[in-house]
Design a protein around this nucleic acid. Structure first.
Lengths: 219, 219
DNA sequence: ACCTGAACACCGTTCAAGT
DNA sequence: ACCTGAACACCGTTCAAGT
């Protein structure tokens, strides 16, 4: 089979993480599946944090944002967001990976971030505001990509949703009336289409609204 | 000293997590600090996940949202968000805790969530939309509360920000021009005031904009 | 009800050594 | 350059036993 390379290790780690959760991604387990000694991995990654960063980089590596063009910034920001979501979709452990990683050490993520920063600036936001907007947009994209509604519609995930819904429905309807009422959608039974469009719309609507406020206060 | 109770254990765990990071919160370490055998903790929490849920619950327990009143929903949603942010502020490990916990198992979090759901409904959003909005608002609040700008202004955190900024500044200015330019604010050197107000404004502006769109499309 | 002691099956990582 | 072997200092958790 293929040679043992940093890339191959990260890919295998993602397979394990997607299938069994990030906790199952262990140096020893990973080495075992790759038919190698645990220490072999330390040649390619100097520790587990670096491996996680490698996984994060691999997750985004397929999505290189094109150079900024002449279209309105709203459109480009939306493309960036849906592109990122699409790249992370199908990797259930993606969000978990990014939670454990210092995003500043992930080159492909920095590339996307850089693009978002530029678009924020061109929308008329200050340096500080652009930082906040971009952080917020990227974080929201990661969260949206993590929608349970989209994870491979396996039998066992449907079962987990069912259990979760039942758990919510059996809560006290006096103290948590709305939770009980909306147990179905809350547990993950949402329309995937709506989840994506609505989430992206929400983020972009907020950014656009603040951009408009900026313009009217300092014309 | 105080008796060994689930509450006391969660408090001590939060102290460790806030001071040294969540990884330092270990059953054995925690038991040691409490002057007790590791197994003693298993009487109060049946496993570590339950302990983390207890920590999450303790984080929010100080913030009980008042019943919904007659004020406009925008105002109440804002109060809910800033209240949650204030409750989590000063607990650097809060975000990490919530990342590891199934939020549905945290009663005090469910109470806040329930409130947000109700306000979403009263804003005219559908059941599904209210679910998405509330999830999004709560998640954003947790992220905003985690602002590095707010963590106890200790010497060592200032040093970490400096190192991070330098790391960003020494990146290739060709591939990441905006990142390099905005290294300062990106590394965490933002005005705390701006961070909060702008973040909350962003989320609420998005929600309000979508509420307005709903009204005009189905009057 | 509340806690201890000993044991099990794991971790990440270092360090010296092999080829 | 790339990988192995043995060892260290940890983990979470179970299970039987104490009071």
């Amino acid at each position: 089979m293929g040679k043992l390379t940093a890339q191959a290790i990260a890919e295998r780690a993602l397979e394990i993480g997607d299938a069994e959760g990030l906790d199952a991604v262990t140096i020893r387990r990973l080495a075992g599946e790759l038919g190698v000694t645990p220490m072999a991995l330390y040649w390619h990654y100097k520790n587990k944090d670096q491996l996680l960063a490698g996984m994060a980089d691999h997750l985004i590596s397929g999505f290189a944002p094109g150079a900024a063009d002449e279209r309105p910034w709203q459109e480009q920001l939306r493309d960036l967001m849906v592109g990122l979501i699409r790249a992370l979709r199908g990797h259930p452990c993606a969000r978990n990976v990014f939670d454990h990683v210092d995003q500043v050490t992930v080159p492909s993520f920095l590339a996307v971030w850089n693009q978002a920063l530029g678009l924020g600036r061109s929308a008329g936001f200050s340096v500080e505001e652009s930082c906040l907007i971009s952080k917020y947009l990227l974080q929201s994209a990661i969260a949206i990509a993590d929608a349970p509604a989209h994870h491979r519609e396996g039998q066992e995930v449907a079962e987990r949703v069912r259990v979760k819904r039942l758990g919510l429905q059996t809560l006290s309807a006096d103290t948590y009336p709305y939770i009980v009422e909306m147990a179905g959608p809350l547990a993950g039974g949402l329309d995937p289409e709506l989840y994506d469009t609505f989430g992206v719309d929400l983020v972009l609507a907020g950014i656009e609204a603040l951009a408009a406020r900026r313009l009217e206060s300092s014309p």
